[in-house]
């Protein structure tokens, strides 16, 4: 179907639904006696991580191994990258080693697209997070999780038309929020962003969303899904809000706020959570929370993505 997965912005509604349907089939295989599939036998997948991310890396690693690919993990720390090697030299080295697919996490927005279009490598490129730009597999696993909770066994073939999703928190620094905005609206959902004014991006008028600063008002409207974003202290070089206590009071999903949600509303979080800051521990552990399902579904979704970019003949 495609050669790379760089952004959810490029995905059409039908392509996104097809990917989620493949992920359903992948999830089913993980309930079999033999969970390993021979599908990508003989294929080499390199996890190229310039930023630390244990969760995303092991999720991709599990997905690639379940499909019988050989997995090589290349962490920038302690590698030649820390000695000043450029992305170009790293990519050309991986090409020479026979990488068929490269899963890249990089601190620079656009790094995955550069790798895919540079000509340095013929490998299929999957964006595992680039700067504050996109994290497409996270959005796909979020959409998959919403669809699965809403429609259960009848999920295949469906989009998210008519669902109201509120995304709360540090939208400014969040690639998860960006990828979800494009994907969820493509799938027919309505997306509303709630954040402190300092944590909303400046060019948000061009996004297909509503934006506000009042979490209580958004909850009063009875959304189907509330997605909490992690407060990313490591990306904040200045003070975006006065104190953690004030942030938690205004933008945290407390037990009292969660009680005002509809009985069937979902609470999501991409992890890792700051319990007590953006989400109360009791809410994260409640039945409406999908946090652990998101982790489990992440493997099936990444299997679907790796299958999509690596199994068919290469068109490039």
């Amino acid at each position: 179907m495609s050669d790379h997965l760089l952004s959810t912005r490029d995905l059409s509604r039908d392509a996104a639904v097809a990917l989620l349907d493949v992920a359903e089939d992948m999830a089913d295989t993980q309930r079999r006696t033999v969970k390993k599939l021979p599908t990508l036998r003989g294929t080499t997948v390199v996890n190229l991580f310039f930023e630390d991310s244990t969760r995303t890396r092991i999720s991709f690693e599990a997905a690639a191994k379940r499909l019988s690919a050989d997995v090589i993990t290349f962490s920038a720390k302690g590698s030649s990258v820390s000695k000043g090697e450029s992305l170009q030299d790293t990519a050309q080295t991986l090409q020479a080693m026979g990488a068929d697919g490269i899963v890249i996490r990089h601190q620079a927005s656009g790094a995955a697209a550069v790798l895919a279009t540079s000509g340095w490598t013929r490998a299929a490129v999957v964006n595992a997070g680039d700067g504050t730009h996109e994290h497409p597999t996270q959005a796909l696993l979020d959409a998959f999780t919403i669809r699965k909770r809403r429609f259960g066994a009848g999920s295949r073939g469906r989009d998210l038309a008519g669902l109201d999703v509120v995304i709360v928190g540090d939208v400014l620094h969040s690639r998860v929020a960006r990828s979800n905005v494009w994907l969820l609206t493509t799938l027919g959902a309505t997306v509303r962003l709630v954040a402190p004014p300092t944590l909303l991006p400046t060019h948000i008028e061009s996004w297909p969303v509503e934006a506000g600063t009042d979490l209580d008002a958004a909850i009063a409207d009875g959304p189907d899904v509330v997605m909490m974003l992690r407060v990313q202290r490591e990306r904040m070089t200045e003070a975006f809000f006065p104190s953690a206590r004030e942030y938690a009071a205004l933008y945290g999903l407390s037990a009292a706020r969660a009680d005002r949600l509809r009985a069937d509303a979902l609470v999501m979080h991409p992890g890792p959570m700051n319990r007590g800051l953006e989400i109360a521990g009791s809410v994260a552990d409640s039945p409406r929370s999908t946090v652990l399902e998101q982790v489990e579904n992440g493997i099936a979704v990444r299997m679907a993505v790796l299958y999509d970019v690596l199994a068919g003949e290469r068109t490039a």
Partner: peptide, 18 residues
């Protein structure tokens, strides 16, 4: 589909439900 030996000879095949 996921067990076929000819996946690499054509565009990616859609999988089906088992």
């Amino acid at each position: 589909t996921l067990y076929r030996d000819d996946l690499g000879t054509q565009p990616t095949r859609a999988t089906g439900r088992t």
